[in-house]
Amino acid sequence: MSLAAVTASDLRDGEVVFWAEGRWVKRFADAELFNAVEPGQAALDLARAQPTIVVEPYLINLDLEGGVPVPTSYRERVRALGPTIHPEMGKQAEGGLVVQALRAHAGGARSSGRLGLIRLKR
């Protein structure tokens, strides 16, 4: 299995969040990375047990961009960054190495970033 992370939307403010060892973090750079099925699934199960904290958690596939993990799906990269038309809005405003990698990565413009639904371009 390739790398994966767990993401969801925060129930109260709708913001994109990522699972990180029992907590929810707002930056993709802080997300916990899973390189095997079982721990990813276990984290997802824990996340799903928090319906008053987050909405609809799911696993996303990750690729490496210059050694930095980034979501395979374009949709998920937009979620991790913010609107492409407003670089000053959303998480991307902070900048940094991971934001650069998220922007640099290409492909995977699918409507869903869910694990198993992504066909990778080889």
């Binding site: 109260r12 709708g14 913001e15 949709r75 979620r79 959303g90």
Partner: peptide, 28 residues
């Protein structure tokens, strides 16, 4: 009721949509 957990997301979603509230990529 949604914030307290009395309503599930599945139940709440059609109710919030009736009031024009969507959950989009970055926020509501």
């Amino acid at each position: 009721r949604r914030l307290s957990g009395a309503l599930t997301e599945e139940h709440f979603k059609p109710l919030r949509l009736m009031n024009g509230l969507y959950l989009q990529l970055h926020a509501y």
